[in-house]
Every structure is written in C-alpha cells, then in structure tokens.
Amino acid sequence: MTVLETERTAPTAGATKDLHTESPIAAPAEPQSRNHRKYLLFALFAFPNLLLIAVFAYWPILGNLLLSLTDWDMISPFPNFIGLENYTALFTDPGFVDVMRRTLTWVVAVVGASLVCGLGMALLFNGGARGTKAVSTLAFTPHVISGAAVAAVWLFVFDPNYGLSRLLFNAIGMDSPHWTTDPDMALSALIIVAVWKGAGFVAIVYLAALQSIPRDVIEAAQLDGAGRWKTFSKIVWPLLTPTTFFLCVTQIIGAFQAFDLIAMMTSGGPAGSTTTLSWYIYEQGFQEFNIGSAAASSVFMFIILLVVTAVQMRFAERKVHYS
C-alpha cells in the first residue's frame, strides 16, 4: 500500500521541484535529482523483496554458522560457545556416517532412476503416438501434487495387509514385503515413491529439449546410415548433455532436501533406516533440540549443495566457451 501511495505523490513532488529550478545554475543538477528520485523508486520497488531475501535466505546461512559453534537447547536464554565440538562430534559419530551413507544412496538412486525413467518416457513421448499428450500430462501430475498426499496414497498401496501390494504379491504366490516397517525395504519404498513423483517432470523437461533438436540434424545422421541407437548415442545424447546436467543438479538439490515423503511414510525409521540428512536435521533441531548439532548438519548440507551448484556453473560456463 505504501508503495502505491508514495508512487502516486512522487510525480507531483518532482513537478513542483521543476518549477523552482528554472535558473540556469540549477539545470545541471536536475538529472541528478531525477536520478535520486529513481533511486528512491528502485528502493521502494525492490527493497521489500531484498530485505525478505536477506532475512530469510542469507541471515540463516550466517546464523547457522554461528549456532553450529554453540550448544543450545532453544530454551535457555543464551547459547554456549563450544567451538568446533559439534563438527567433531558429528564426524566421529558412526551414526552420522551412516546417515551420510544413506543420504548418498538415496540421492543417487532417486536422481539416477528419475533421470533414466524420465529420459525413457521422453523418448517414447517424442515418438508422437496418439495419446502421448494425455499420458505425458498424467505422468507430470504427481509433480504438482502435495508430497504428503502422494505419501499417504503410497502408504496405503504398500500396506502389506490391506494394500495393493498384498494383491500384487499374492497374485504371484508371495507375501507382500513389509515395505515401511522392514529396514531393508523402507528406503527402497521411499525411492519408488520419489521416482514416481518426480520422473514425469524429468520426462517433460527432456521432451522439451528433444523437440528443440533440429530435425535435419537427426535426418542427416540417418541418411548417413546411422541406426536408432547410434543416432541416439552419437547425436541426441550429446545434445541433451546440458539438460541432463541441469536436471542432475536440480534433482540432487531436491533429493537432499526431501522431507515430506519421509515424514509421512517412515519418520526416519524403522531403526533409523530412512534417516537422511534432511530428516536428521529436523530430528536434531526440532525433536531433540540439539540446536548446535542441527546447525552444524545444516552447514554441512549447505556446503555440499553449494559445491554441486558450483560444479554445474563451471560446466555451464565451459559449455558457453565451446559453442
């Protein structure tokens, strides 16, 4: 509201100023005052957003760094400074090493499977058979749906007593696995759901990239007698590399932060078998209130993702140089 009002009054203020500054001496100063007005306008337009970004995106990074050097329970008035103790405790805790190993498995499996399934679907969709559009839209749908809802549906599908899983496994003469209560299965169950939710998005992005490949490039290759596989591996796949790389990075960032599926389906269990870094941060921070430890884990996650993004940016830059 205030932005609008100020904007409305601004021209009048400027107009009166113009009347008073008719003397030749004042003339050179005029562009500067107009610039100042524009500065003010810039500030009015941009600063609310910039302030929000500063407070809710940048301050947390700095604050995490500071809190990670303390031992705090969220209640006592002042955190205690304990140096790097939280970090040494994390990296010497075999439990945390397990969390990281599990996180890595999760990220690699989710991203890998989403990309493979997504690319497969995109190639199929690119064939343009009738009904493609409906199916591709269908595949994309889970991407826009609440993770909590997707998790609830799959929790029911996986239910070994009343779920679809019992139906399917009984049909082949087996008992359904206990998907979410068996620590050997739980992470796989989550991976299936995450891929189900995310592969459609990957497919659509790949499809857009496939369709931006000029057709004559492919036709030229085929005229040279290249088979389907050769055309794909020698022409299409290299042309898709920037897309693949971009998808890798965004999917990795997403997978690292996956939370709603885990919260709804397993709460990090059973026996910690689905405790990834993102759940660990939540558990330490908001269930056990080891704020220092949660902050140190957050810093760790931030650094990992920063490196991932930096690698992508370096790559993107090189790409520009080559082309």
């Binding site: 303390t70 031992d71 705090w72 329970d73 969220m74 209640i75 006592s76 008035p77 002042f78 955190p79 205690n80 400074f81 103790e85 939280n86 405790a89 056990e288 209130f289 080891n290 704020i291 220092g292 430890s293």
Partner: peptide
C-alpha cells in the same frame, strides 16, 4: 552433545553469554 540440554545450559550459560 546430546546431554539434557535444558539442564546443562542453565548452569553454564552465564559465563559465555557475551559471545
């Protein structure tokens, strides 16, 4: 690290509260 955080910090907080 995972001590009872509520209890322990109360004791030692005053000495380092300036940090």
């Amino acid at each position: 690290m995972q001590n009872n955080p509520l209890a322990s910090t109360l004791e030692k907080s005053s000495s380092r509260r300036s940090f």
